[in-house]
Computed example of a mutant assay.
Amino acid sequence: MADHVEERESIIEKIVEKIHDHDSSSSSDSDDDKKPSDHSSFEAKVFRLFGREKPVHKVLGGGKSADVLLWRDRKVSATVVGFATAVWVLFELLEYHLLTLACHVLIFLLASLFLWANVSTFINKPAPEIPEFHISDDIILGVVSTLRIEINFAIGVLRDILSGRDFKKFVAVVAGLWLISVVGSWSNFLTLAYIVFVLLQTVPYLYEKHEDRVDPFAEKAFIELKKQYVVFDEKVLSKIPIGPLKGNKAA
Rank of each mutant, 00 (worst) to 15 (best):
L90A: 11
T100K: 08
P241K: 14
R148P: 00
V214M: 05
V183Y: 04
L162T: 11
I155R: 07
D33S: 12
N118V: 03
K209G: 09
K45S: 15
H210F: 12
L49A: 07
W88I: 01
F108C: 08
E6L: 05
K249Q: 10
I19P: 03
L49V: 07
S185M: 07
I135Y: 11
R8K: 15
W116A: 13
V46F: 02
L225F: 05
L60N: 13
V59E: 15
V87A: 13
G61T: 02
R213F: 05
S25E: 15
V119G: 01
A154V: 01
L99V: 06
S27A: 11
N118I: 05
L98C: 03
S40Q: 13
V203F: 10
V236L: 14
P55F: 00
S112K: 10
K249S: 10
P216V: 01
R213W: 12
F197C: 09
T202M: 03
A250C: 04
P55A: 09
K14D: 15
H39N: 14
L94N: 08
V89E: 13
V173W: 05
A2H: 01
G61K: 03
S25T: 11
I11C: 06
L99W: 07
L113I: 04
K64S: 11
I180R: 06
P216A: 06
V80F: 04
H104Y: 04
A251D: 14
L101D: 12
F197A: 13
K168G: 06
L109Y: 07
D31S: 11
L192A: 06
D21I: 00
F232R: 04
A102L: 11
Y207Q: 07
S30K: 11
H20S: 15
E92S: 14
L225C: 09
Q201W: 00
L192V: 02
V143K: 06
F222S: 13
D29A: 13
F232Q: 11
T146V: 02
S120I: 00
N152M: 10
R74Y: 07
V196D: 15
H134A: 12
S24Q: 14
D21H: 14
A44N: 13
L237P: 05
F197S: 12
S145R: 02
P128G: 06
Q228H: 12
S181Y: 06
P204E: 10
S24M: 07
P216F: 04
P128E: 11
V81I: 12
S26M: 09
V196E: 15
C103K: 11
D73S: 06
E219P: 00
N152V: 02
A86M: 07
G82E: 01
A102G: 03
H134Q: 12
H97G: 06
E234W: 01
V174R: 07
S10K: 15
K246P: 01
E6Q: 12
N118F: 05
V173M: 11
S65C: 02
P131I: 00
D160T: 08
V171G: 10
E150Y: 01
I135L: 13
S185F: 03
D21W: 02
L179C: 07
E234Q: 11
G142Q: 09
I240A: 10
E6D: 14
P244K: 12
Y96N: 07
Y207F: 08
L49G: 02
E6T: 05
F153V: 00
P36F: 02
V56G: 13
